[in-house]
Computed example of a mutant assay.
Amino acid sequence: MISIVTDSTADLSPALRAQEQIRSVPLYVLFDGQMLKDGIDIQTKALFEGIKAGKKTPSTSQPSPAEFAAVYREALETADEVLSIHISGQLSGTVGSARLAAQEFGGKVTVVDSRTVSLGLGLQALRAARLAREGRSAADIVSALERVQAQQDIRFTVDTLEFLRLNGRIGGAQALLGGLLNIKPILAVRGGRVESAGRARGSKKALADIAEHVRKYAEQHPGANVAFLATDGGEGTVVELRAALAGVNYTDMGDHHFGAVVGTHAGPGTYGAVLEPAQV
């Protein structure tokens, strides 16, 4: 039996994690002088309300190896192996902490860099849990995840580039340009990094561009899995995005919310979609 572990940046709801028997190790948000566990001590709504009230923009931090080791020990009480899947190593040191912890367990823990974040990571964890239930080996599951990573796509847009700029995820010049010209950036996760995938003049054009990208992806991958996600303030736009995809052949993986760690970097009003082939 293989137990699946991920981290809180997978942005899977507690109910969905419980249903799929996926354990999660929380990252931290340093906010208002406190180190808070993502999804446990701090939720995205409270985070944005605090920032709006004038509190300093938070920062984030990965879990320690000891925290991973505690979860691995618990998982191995009922499982033979652990497959631990985490946020891109180019975005966080989380996978490094997991690998340090794994050394303690004599090969029983396999750590995977998802090369992505949020529901990109979440969908990989869900796929791994399904394959584990089917009796697939850890090596087989890792191979399947590597094939997913080669074809998975995330497209999203942010209400403002300021949060990405403050947290060092995008250059200050690009943030200034977006603010001056009402340019809405279209962003993607490529090779484990957040990169520009285009620019749109205004919110309506940004939504149309993302919808067109999803449409083309679904044409190339009939029945593709599509998960919709948003921070607080972006939920209404997800409704519009789904409406713009009427008639497209895709498998709807539901609506999800960015957690506090991802929300710290994305900011309010962010929304988008995660795309992957149904079969790999």
Results as ranks from 00 to 15, higher is better:
R165K: 10
H86T: 07
P185E: 01
V194H: 03
A208P: 02
D38S: 09
R99V: 10
V239R: 09
G54T: 06
D32H: 12
S118Q: 10
Q21S: 15
Q174P: 09
M1P: 14
G54Q: 10
G135C: 08
L229N: 06
S137F: 14
R193E: 15
D38P: 06
L91D: 03
E77W: 03
V158W: 01
Q174H: 13
Q62P: 02
G122M: 02
V194D: 02
E20W: 10
P65V: 08
G233M: 08
H213R: 14
T78V: 15
A188C: 12
L126V: 12
G247K: 13
V148Y: 13
R127F: 09
T44W: 04
G54R: 08
R155P: 00
E212I: 07
S196T: 09
T270G: 04
V25G: 05
G259T: 07
D113T: 03
A101Q: 14
L119K: 02
A211N: 08
S97F: 06
R99F: 09
A150L: 06
V82H: 08
L47A: 06
R201V: 12
Q19T: 11
E20S: 11
F105Q: 05
A129M: 04
H213C: 05
E146N: 15
I85S: 02
R127K: 15
I40Y: 11
E162C: 05
Q21V: 08
S196G: 15
R73W: 03
S59T: 15
P65Q: 08
L47M: 13
I141C: 00
G50S: 03
L161N: 01
P268F: 04
T270V: 12
A260M: 06
A227N: 07
D140Q: 15
K56C: 02
L245A: 06
A188T: 15
A200N: 09
Q149N: 09
A243V: 04
E235H: 13
Q220G: 07
R169P: 00
A150W: 05
S88T: 01
L123Y: 02
G269N: 06
A101V: 13
E81A: 15
V194P: 00
G236V: 03
A173W: 11
D209S: 13
E49C: 07
A244F: 04
P277N: 02
T57W: 15
Q90L: 09
E74R: 14
G223S: 07
A244M: 08
T78I: 14
Y72K: 07
I154E: 00
E104T: 09
G106D: 15
S59K: 15
A227H: 03
G269K: 13
T237I: 11
V239G: 12
Q174A: 15
L16R: 14
S61N: 12
D113I: 02
A75I: 09
A208F: 04
H265D: 01
Q21K: 13
E77F: 06
L36I: 10
A211H: 10
G234Q: 00
R130W: 05
L83I: 09
L123E: 12
A15F: 07
E104C: 03
T251K: 10
G247A: 04
Y250P: 02
D232Y: 10
K52H: 12
H221R: 01
A15N: 06
D252M: 01
E81P: 02
L100N: 10
E77P: 00
L176P: 00
P65W: 08
A200M: 08
I141R: 00
D41N: 10
D41A: 11
L166G: 05
